[in-house]
Computed example of a mutant assay.
Amino acid sequence: MLDKTKIGHQFESFKVDVEKGRLKFFAKSIGETNPIYIDEEAAIAAGYKSLPAPPTFPFSLDMEGPELLPVIGLLNLDIGRVLHGTQEFNYFGQIHAGDTITVSSELKNIFDKKGGALEFVVMENSYTNQDGELMAQASVTLVYRNV
């Protein structure tokens, strides 16, 4: 069973610069065709200060930390038994090209099902811009197979 005393652990925050090229690449990779995501003039004409980040973009920021999925080390998980379960976003503002986003993560919960055969690790990630404004939060659930 996973160590539930780790619930509440806050991981080291890190900063990521949001660049235009990265936003364009992300938009293209998810099949986004709305010109506001790939043409800065279209974005400004639509009322944005620069290219806006597509809705699921904060997930890609998680990968920029000093360690990929630091919860793996904290809970001593075998990566071969980890599955991405769910991810939900709440948005409070718009991330734009030129922003510097601070990513903060906390281990929010650990629970099991099927008599402990499956354990669920719930993380909450927060994305705050350079002005200290919370732009988004994500709830991420990982599934750990014990059998």
Rank of each mutant, 00 (worst) to 15 (best):
S139T: 14
F25L: 10
V121N: 02
E19S: 13
L142Q: 06
P58A: 00
V143N: 08
Q94L: 03
H96T: 13
I72R: 08
F26H: 11
Y91E: 14
K49Q: 14
E40S: 04
K6L: 03
A27G: 09
T102I: 01
P55W: 10
R145K: 12
A136W: 11
L118S: 05
A97L: 11
G65K: 00
L118Y: 13
H9T: 15
A45F: 05
V71T: 13
L107W: 00
H96P: 11
G31P: 08
A117T: 08
F89N: 12
A42F: 07
I7L: 06
K4Y: 03
H96N: 14
F14P: 15
F14T: 10
A27Q: 08
A46G: 11
L74Q: 02
T141W: 06
E12I: 02
K15L: 02
E41N: 12
E124L: 02
D3G: 12
T141S: 05
D39Y: 04
D3S: 12
D17E: 14
M63K: 00
S126R: 02
F57Q: 01
G8W: 13
Y37C: 06
E119Y: 03
D17L: 01
D17N: 13
Y144G: 00
P58Y: 09
S60R: 00
D62F: 11
K114N: 08
S104A: 12
E12S: 08
K6I: 07
D78L: 02
Y127M: 05
M63T: 13
E106Y: 01
L69N: 13
N34R: 01
L61F: 10
A138L: 11
G21T: 00
A138Y: 00
V121P: 05
S60P: 10
E41I: 03
V16D: 06
G98P: 13
R22L: 07
S60Q: 09
E133Y: 01
Q94V: 15
D39V: 03
I101A: 09
I79D: 08
V18A: 09
E67A: 12
N109P: 03
L2G: 06
L74H: 03
T86Y: 12
A53C: 07
S139H: 02
Y127C: 06
L134Y: 05
T56Q: 01
T33S: 15
Q137F: 00
A46P: 07
K24L: 05
I79G: 00
V147G: 14
T33I: 14
I110G: 10
Y37K: 01
F111C: 06
F11R: 07
T33N: 11
D99L: 03
A97C: 11
Y127G: 05
I72Q: 04
I95H: 03
L68V: 10
